[in-house]
Amino acid sequence: MTVMTAPQAETTEATKGGAPELIKAVPVRHPGRWVAAAIILVLAALAIQSLATNPRFAWGTVAAYIMDVNVVRGVGWTLLLTVLSMLLAIILAIILAFMRQSDNPILRWSSWFWVWFFRGTPVYTQLIFWGLVTVLYPSISLGIPFGPQLATYILSDPSKGFIPAILGLGLNESAYLAEIFRAGLKSVDKGQVEAAEALGMRGTKIMWRIVLPQAMRVIVPPTGNETIGMLKTTSLVLAVPFTLDLTFVTNALANRTYQPIPLLIVAAAWYLLVTSILMVGQHYIEKYYGRGVDNLVAAAAVNPAAAKAAGAGTPAGSDTGNGTAIPGGPTAAGPTIEESGR
């Protein structure tokens, strides 16, 4: 404590002699940056001018149809398809990721097979298949295997294209999400599980309370990506066929009015709006699951001051007071122990 090191001494002297003279250097010029920026601005201006002046964009038609009741309903169906198929995919993916970690080889293999199959075939093909399932199985019955049937659901009803669409999108997506969840679970340190086990916690609880919340930090960003991807993949449901979603509705309007370009703009504008809203949601989910890891800078900066305050005062609750962070205590205690018996 008494010995002052050289750098500290210099700093003290400099401070004594007034504020140091700060460097004011002439910055290096970057003409290339200015040229690149100019090119981009000119291109952007051209694009805006074209959008504004080319009558074939038919902005009047865009305005007429953007809030059209069929279009807005189409947005609703597209959102519903996205949310429900992602929900199905997430539930399946969690199960698949857990199965992949199982000690039971049959569970591991079937999880691997599922991912192999659904990732290995085009989603368009799968959607057509789910549309045709009604031909293979006109109805689904709930019952005892090889025994009596308890409930029956008729599939071969054309208005029921919604369920095959959800199945097709959800099952395909579950294969991708399963890999994302698997990577997330693997990213959590093994020590976390050991610590929980040592406290007497058990498998499922450890998974839900310790591992999964920390894995979510890794899982959420790519899952948000997949959700936005799903929003647009729903435009393929005409393969089922399901004909109420945004893309199908705007295409139908375009065919009816012979004005494909403004109606494509209508569809694109809605997709962009929904994507933007989903991105906001993703931001908050990421923030929630990043707790304890991300955005700790502010709190950490408070630490040194708080540490000093703590060291100066409160004794520990223990009777000896040995547990307190006394200033100098941390440095003094170690050597003291070492020396005491030597």
Binding site: D189, G191, Q192, E194, A195, A196, E197, A198, L199, G200, M201, R202, G203, I210, P213, Q214, R217, Y289, R291, G292, V293
Partner: peptide
């Protein structure tokens, strides 16, 4: 059974070299 092992561990505290605190909890 895992349940019984967990019960035995409740009576035995363990402190690890790498702390292994749960990172998402205060």
């Amino acid at each position: 059974h895992l349940k019984e092992i967990a019960a035995q561990r409740r009576n035995i505290g363990m402190v690890f070299q790498r702390f292994n605190l749960f990172g998402h909890k205060t």
